[in-house]
């Protein structure tokens, strides 16, 4: 936990996928056991940067995610630290069976990075979007699941993932991400960050929805509602202590994520709340549907993933608390 700050400029930084690709090059320089596999999307996932510098340690798998996921298992059995990358929807859905039997079941040291997560990829539409992968990743025993908010968080957490022994999924996005953190922010897997302290309600979010939560908090504050904002960058294992404290101290929780509500962060937080300090909750996320083609901004607005939707949820909660 770090001291809360009151002012967030939320200037656009680079996309989290790009921060991943850049960090991977640094890691490659530091550790020769790191190898990278990609399935014909290296320009989009930014693993092309690693490819340029370490051609011997980059493996082109072609458009074959199942094969790629199990190759990563083979690499890890032999002591390497493989990073495999593709769009979240492809690596998780097409690679799921292999991530289950060739990675999770033997608990291998494989790092899976999904880019183009959520619906904010925009115009390409739902076949390329990923709204189920966090639920799928969390369902794999032993997997650590990380969803960073901005470039600073991504760089630090990709680094933490490489140092962590065990399977990790990291969820990154296509669009430029608003900058939440100062460059020197410290991150620890499994330890959430309270961005803003508050007493009436807690907003627990990940990824792009962190910026929306901060925007919502500022407007709610003007209305006289004090909101705590927590970045729960590690979706699994959850920071149970921070959730319990939020439930106990604020008595109401909104979860916000760019993912289906079914199987997402919110239901996982709700489990902890139910087990510890039951309190009213609301869930901002995608409601049992697939999106469509449009600009990212139009989609986030239409599918209820902006500050306005968090504010509405807080208003409902304030009503329910009485």
């Amino acid at each position: 936990m770090t001291p809360s700050r009151t002012k967030f400029e939320l200037k656009l930084g680079i996309a989290t996928r790009e921060a991943f690709g850049k960090t991977l090059v640094d890691l490659g320089r530091e550790n020769k056991d790191i190898v990278v596999c990609d399935a014909d999307l290296s320009k989009s996932t930014y693993t092309s940067l690693f490819h340029s510098e370490f051609p011997d340690r980059f493996v082109s798998c072609g458009i074959a995610e199942s094969n790629m996921a199990a190759i990563a298992g083979g690499f890890a059995y032999a002591g390497k630290i493989p990073f495999i990358a593709s769009f979240s929807c492809f690596v998780m859905n097409k690679g799921f069976e292999q991530l289950r039997v060739a990675v999770a079941y033997p608990n291998l040291n494989v790092k899976v990075v999904g880019t183009h997560s959520g619906i904010s990829i925009g115009e390409d539409g739902p076949s390329q979007m990923s709204v189920e992968e966090t639920g799928l990743a969390c369902s794999l025993p032993g997997f650590t699941v990380i969803s960073p908010a901005d470039e600073v968080a991504t760089a630090a957490l990709v680094r933490a993932a490489a140092a962590h022994v065990g399977p990790v999924f990291i969820r990154t996005g296509r669009m430029k991400a608003p900058m939440v953190y100062p460059a020197d922010q410290k991150f620890q897997i499994g330890k959430s960050i309270v961005l803003i302290e508050g007493t009436d309600v807690t907003i627990i979010a990940t990824g792009l929805l962190i910026a929306e939560a901060i925007r919502a908090q500022e407007k709610l504050e003007a209305e006289g509602i004090s909101s705590r904002v927590i970045d729960i960058h590690t979706v699994k294992p959850l920071d149970r202590e921070a959730i319990e404290r939020a439930a106990s101290e604020t008595g109401a929780i909104v979860c916000a994520e760019e993912h289906l509500v079914d199987g997402g962060l919110g239901v996982r937080v709700a489990q902890v709340v139910a087990e510890t300090q039951p309190c009213p909750m609301e869930f901002v996320g995608i409601q049992d549907t697939y999106a469509e083609s449009a600009t990212p901004e139009q989609l986030l607005d239409k599918y209820g993933l902006v500050a306005r939707d968090i504010i509405k949820a807080v208003h409902r909660l304030v009503g329910r608390k009485k």
Partner: peptide
């Protein structure tokens, strides 16, 4: 050398080990 049983995965696992070698 590997946990197996879900058919179809051994060639890929072997490729990973062979690449590491």
């Amino acid at each position: 050398e590997a946990s197996t049983g879900s058919l179809g995965e051994g060639v890929s696992l072997g490729l990973g080990m062979a690449l590491a070698a």
